[in-house]
């Protein structure tokens, strides 16, 4: 109904009301969703031992926890390690997935459907099943206590392949055919048409893989026996001891740990959400 009204008379009040309702709904949802986030920050500012006082706001806010995280707990090193692992993993995993997705979306080759089915099926086996055999391979390769051990096993990102292929199939075939007629080879089609068109999703995948590695605790712990190679998630788990949880410290470290990905998101979101594609199609 609103649609037809809108077309009849471009009345401002109706639109205003709708926008207002939208803002109210979105703000309410944002408050609910962000509550744990706010709690984390508030707990990070509390004195150790007073984490579970009923007050939401700390009585005597302190930055001591934050300071201790970096001075006493070696988080500087953990951040460096995690950055290396997460950036290179995300980079190569996204590259490999996009190349393979291109083949599955636009190429014809033998056993294509079957290979794809097997690859997708591997995603459906619980991750727990992979840990021991993967570790055995890492050990056989002599990669214990290296960044490689944390990075390489996860470079075949099935989830990413699936995601990218799904998007690539929505790219109009006519665009590809047109380029082919102009004499473009596969790499040119991939690099100049498909990737730019799929950029929002490629960038999203980069972000998600980065996030995955930034929080992958168990694997990164299993392949390292050296504290100098510990990553952020391993460091975070240090705050949970056998009998006590150092909540204030843990929350302080958690809050800092999500800064990199949040910054990436805030600054990169225009590239992967807002109309890059529309410009690319005109080309």
């Amino acid at each position: 109904m609103t649609g037809s009204e809108k077309t009849k008379r471009p009345v401002q009040p109706g639109r205003w009301a709708r926008t207002a309702v939208l803002y109210v709904v979105l703000s309410a949802a944002a408050i609910v969703v962000l509550f744990p986030f706010a709690w984390m920050i508030m707990t990070a500012l509390k004195q150790p031992g007073t984490e579970f006082d009923p007050e939401f706001f700390p009585k005597q806010p302190t930055l001591e926890n934050l300071k201790r995280v970096f001075t006493e707990f070696g988080f500087v090193r953990y951040f460096l390690n995690s950055s290396i692992v997460a950036v290179s993993s995300a980079l190569f995993a996204t590259l490999f997935a996009s190349l393979a997705a291109y083949a599955f979306a636009f190429k014809n080759f033998i056993l294509k459907e079957k290979v794809f089915a097997v690859i997708i099926a591997s995603m459906m086996v619980p991750g727990l099943m992979y840990v021991v055999p993967q570790f055995a391979i890492i050990n056989r390769l002599g990669w214990m206590n290296t960044y490689r051990a944390m990075i390489v096993p996860h470079l075949a990102n099935v989830f990413g392949l699936f995601l990218l292929r799904q998007y690539m199939t929505t790219i109009p075939k006519s665009l590809i055919d047109a380029a082919r007629i102009d004499g473009a080879n596969d790499f040119q089609v991939y690099g100049r048409i498909v990737v730019p068109l799929a950029l929002p999703v490629v960038a999203t995948l980069f972000l998600l893989t980065f996030q995955f590695h930034w929080s992958n605790f168990l694997w990164q712990l299993i392949v390292t026996n050296k504290e100098s190679l510990y990553t952020v998630p391993v460091g975070l788990s240090m705050f949970k001891q056998q009998h006590e949880q150092l909540y204030a410290l843990k929350m302080a470290a958690s809050a800092v740990s999500i800064v990199p990905i949040s910054v990436i998101f805030v600054f990169a979101q225009r590239y992967f959400i807002e109309g890059v594609t529309k410009g690319a199609i005109k080309e």
Binding site: A100, N108, V125, M129, P153
Partner: peptide, 25 residues
């Protein structure tokens, strides 16, 4: 040629997949 070029695109992914996912599977 189509098969070969497809393989070029697939190979990095498939190699890692074969070693670190298919074999454990």
């Amino acid at each position: 040629a189509e098969n070969v070029s497809a393989l070029v695109f697939l190979s990095p992914f498939i190699v890692i997949f074969g070693v670190f996912l298919a074999w454990p599977l």
